[in-house]
Computed example of a mutant assay.
Amino acid sequence: MKVIVIAGAAHALIASISQEFGDTAVAWEDAGEGYQQGIIAGVTAYFENPDLTPELEHQKWVEAKQADGWVHGDAIDTTPKTHPLLLPFAELPVEHRVKAAILHAAVHELKDLPDADEAAAVDVAAALAKVPARQAAPSAPAGPGKIVVVYIGRKPTYTDHLYGTGLSFRQGQERAMPAEIARKFLRHPDMFEEGSAKAVADAPAKSDKVEDKDEDDDTTRQLAAAKKLEDENREKENRILDLKQQINIMTKDSLAEYAMTNYKQNLDKRKSVAELRQAVTGMIDQFGVV
C-alpha cells in the first residue's frame, strides 16, 4: 500500500505546482478516477523499473495510447480518440514536463517508506493530497477575477488548442478572461501580454434582451463552449470506464448477450471468460458506447 501513500504525496506536490501555472488545485478524492489511476500507474512503473525516466515513462504511455488507437489532437476526445499530450516529451508544455519530474522525484525520495496496511495508506494519502488553494495575486480589475490579455503574435490570427479554451484572437485583440486562464496565456510573452482593463471597464453594458452578433469580446461564450465540450468528453470517458468495470464482472452469458444486443457480434462461448471480456472491451474501444 506504499504506492497509494506516494501517489497521494505526489498529487499534493503536483497540485501545488499547478497553482503556480494558473491551474486550480483539487483534492485527491475530487480528481477523478482516471487521474488517480494515472498517478498510481506512474508510481507503480517507477517502482518496477528504478531506471525509468520521465521521458521514457511518457514514451511508454504514448505507445500504449497509440496501440489502443489514439492519435494527437487538440482536445481529449474518446470519439475519435484524440489527446493533446500525444507528443514527444520535449514538445510537451513545460508544466506537464515539470509535473512528470515531480512524480519521478516523489517516488525516488519516498520509495523506502515502510509499508502500511490498506486503511492507513488510504488515510495518509488522503491527508497528504488535501492541498489548500492559495489566493491568486491581485490583478487589474477587468471584471471580477479577470485579467485582460492582448494577442501580439506574428500571425494575423491565433486559435488556442494548447489549453483547451478554443479562444481565437486577431492581432492586437484584447480579451478579458478568468485570471487562471489568463496566466496560462501570459506564460508566452512572445505571443501575449497583459492589457489595460480600462477599455473593458468603459465598454457599454449590453442589454440582456438584445443579441449583439457583432460583439468583439465573445470570450465568455467561447470559454463556455470549450467548457461544455470538455465536460461532454469527460462524461464520455467516465461512461466508458464505468462500462469496462461492469464488463470485468460479467459472466459468459451476459457478455454474449451484451455483444449481440449492442454490436451485433456473436461471441464464441467456448473461450474463457477473460477472453470474452477482452473481446467486448475491444468492441467498446473500437465502436464506442452504443
Score class of each variant (00 low, 15 high):
residue 17 I to E: 09
residue 98 V to Q: 04
residue 240 I to E: 10
residue 105 A to N: 10
residue 232 E to M: 11
residue 246 Q to N: 15
residue 23 D to F: 15
residue 219 T to D: 03
residue 76 I to E: 13
residue 32 G to C: 00
residue 54 P to R: 04
residue 41 A to M: 06
residue 230 E to R: 14
residue 84 P to G: 08
residue 126 A to T: 02
residue 279 A to P: 06
residue 76 I to G: 04
residue 121 A to L: 01
residue 185 F to S: 11
residue 216 D to L: 11
residue 278 Q to H: 13
residue 262 N to T: 09
residue 69 G to R: 14
residue 147 I to E: 11
residue 229 L to P: 00
residue 106 A to Y: 00
residue 158 Y to Q: 10
residue 152 I to L: 07
residue 196 S to F: 04
residue 1 M to K: 02
residue 111 K to P: 04
residue 109 E to R: 03
residue 4 I to F: 09
residue 83 H to W: 06
residue 79 T to I: 11
residue 95 E to W: 13
residue 106 A to C: 02
residue 68 D to K: 14
residue 120 A to R: 10
residue 203 A to W: 01
residue 285 D to G: 08
residue 283 M to S: 06
residue 167 L to P: 05
residue 279 A to Y: 10
residue 75 A to K: 08
residue 162 L to D: 13
residue 27 A to E: 03
residue 36 Q to I: 04
residue 96 H to D: 14
residue 240 I to L: 01
residue 74 D to L: 06
residue 81 K to F: 05
residue 109 E to Y: 05
residue 98 V to S: 04
residue 117 D to V: 06
residue 227 K to M: 08
residue 17 I to W: 10
residue 111 K to C: 07
residue 49 N to Y: 09
residue 248 N to Q: 15
residue 240 I to F: 00
residue 136 A to T: 06
residue 61 W to I: 13
residue 2 K to M: 06
residue 35 Y to M: 10
residue 53 T to H: 03
residue 104 H to A: 14
residue 41 A to G: 07
residue 285 D to P: 03
residue 84 P to A: 04
residue 104 H to F: 14
residue 220 T to A: 13
residue 160 D to A: 01
residue 205 A to M: 08
residue 60 K to E: 10
residue 221 R to C: 01
residue 191 M to S: 12
residue 2 K to N: 12
residue 232 E to K: 13
residue 110 L to Q: 00
residue 212 D to F: 04
residue 247 I to V: 15
residue 139 S to K: 07
residue 38 G to R: 05
residue 165 T to P: 06
residue 283 M to H: 10
residue 135 Q to E: 13
residue 96 H to Q: 15
residue 122 V to A: 15
residue 217 D to Y: 02
residue 187 R to D: 11
residue 234 R to G: 04
residue 205 A to S: 11
residue 192 F to N: 07
residue 123 D to P: 08
residue 45 A to W: 05
residue 160 D to C: 08
residue 65 K to A: 15
residue 192 F to W: 07
residue 208 D to Y: 04
residue 12 A to L: 02
residue 9 A to Q: 09
residue 170 R to S: 14
residue 198 K to P: 01
residue 267 L to R: 05
residue 211 E to P: 00
residue 91 E to A: 13
residue 7 A to V: 04
residue 209 K to G: 03
residue 57 E to T: 02
residue 97 R to G: 02
residue 66 Q to R: 15
residue 252 K to R: 15
residue 285 D to R: 12
residue 263 Y to R: 02
residue 27 A to W: 08
residue 186 L to R: 05
residue 156 P to E: 11
residue 279 A to H: 12
residue 89 F to Q: 07
residue 121 A to W: 01
residue 35 Y to L: 11
residue 245 Q to R: 15
